[in-house]
């Protein structure tokens, strides 16, 4: 069942058409991969879906309800949480404070006047910190954490709000293999509990190992979608990644062999 539907989205920056009639769906309860060469429009698509960019045309729907043009805080309210390509945490706030920013924003202004560090709230953040393994650093300023820890913190900061969908923009970028395995395990565990994921990633091994379904973008359009094996074998994908010339060379070599 499709959870997020993107219909004919276009977005141009000056002469660059970052998205050019992009149509795709992300399925509910699955880990959806989104791959494509540099400049194929993956991050722009994320920005459009999460309300950071207004599309020039086209529709985005979540659970069949249109969310096109909603502001980021409203999109978040519809159950979509995201991370950023360049990790973004709140550096001058402590690790715990970082987590509580996202927690429980639904209750209107009255709830905003309540203490952020009530026992109930903190037991929740304790669970999340244990889950990502950052409990030891709870009182530390987030800016003092290592890059990998910041990645985990950003992830935890989304997760604490229990969104329906978590969109991860290059979670593996600059992360060491041990931490990557750790992160993948966390993603799978959350997915097992029903959270849908959309993962933009360049690390093919990571994507193919993690994702149930992969969409491929090229020049602002979706060119192919399916399970990892199908996508890996698709000639259009190879073309998008390696270029036509390369493929011709490959073919020529294949003939020679």
């Amino acid at each position: 069942m499709s959870l997020i539907e993107v219909q004919d989205i276009a977005k141009a920056y000056g002469g660059i058409r970052a998205l050019d009639g992009c149509t795709m769906t992300f399925e509910s309860g699955k880990i959806n991969g989104l791959i494509g060469p540099n400049g194929s429009g993956k991050t722009t698509l994320f920005n459009v879906v999460t309300g950071y960019e207004r599309p020039d045309r086209g529709q985005v729907a979540v659970n069949g309800e249109g969310i096109t043009g909603l502001s980021p805080d409203k999109v978040f309210g519809r159950g979509l949480g995201r991370t950023f390509q360049l990790t973004r945490i709140f550096p001058r706030m402590t690790v715990v404070e970082n987590l509580h920013v996202a927690a429980q924003r639904a209750g209107g202004f009255r709830s905003e006047l309540s203490r952020w560090s009530s026992t109930e709230e903190r037991s929740k953040s304790k669970e999340v910190l244990d889950f990502v393994g950052l409990t030891r650093l709870a009182a530390e300023l987030a800016g003092n954490l290592s890059y990998g820890q910041q990645k985990l913190l950003e992830f935890a900061g989304i997760m604490i709000a229990e969104p329906q969908v978590i969109l991860l923009d290059e979670p593996a970028g600059g992360v060491n293999p041990t931490l990557l395995t750790h992160l993948a395990t966390r993603i799978q565990a959350l997915n097992g509990q029903g959270t849908t994921f959309v993962v933009v990633e360049h690390d093919m091994e990571f994507v193919m190992g993690l994702c149930h379904r992969v969409c491929v973008m090229h020049q602002g359009r979706a060119i192919c979608a399916g399970d990892p094996e199908t996508v890996r074998a698709d000639p259009m994908v190879l073309e998008a990644y390696l270029g036509t010339d390369m493929r011709e060379i490959d073919d020529a070599e294949a003939e020679v062999v």
Binding site: T50, G51, Y52, S71, P72, D73, V75, F76, G77, G81, R82, F84, R88, I89, F90, P91, R92, M93, E97, V101, A102, R105, A106, G157, I158, A161
Partner: peptide, 14 residues
Amino acid sequence: LAIRDDEDRAKGLG
């Protein structure tokens, strides 16, 4: 405080 540190991300967290 979240706005001070990163307003755009704060927006994305509701």
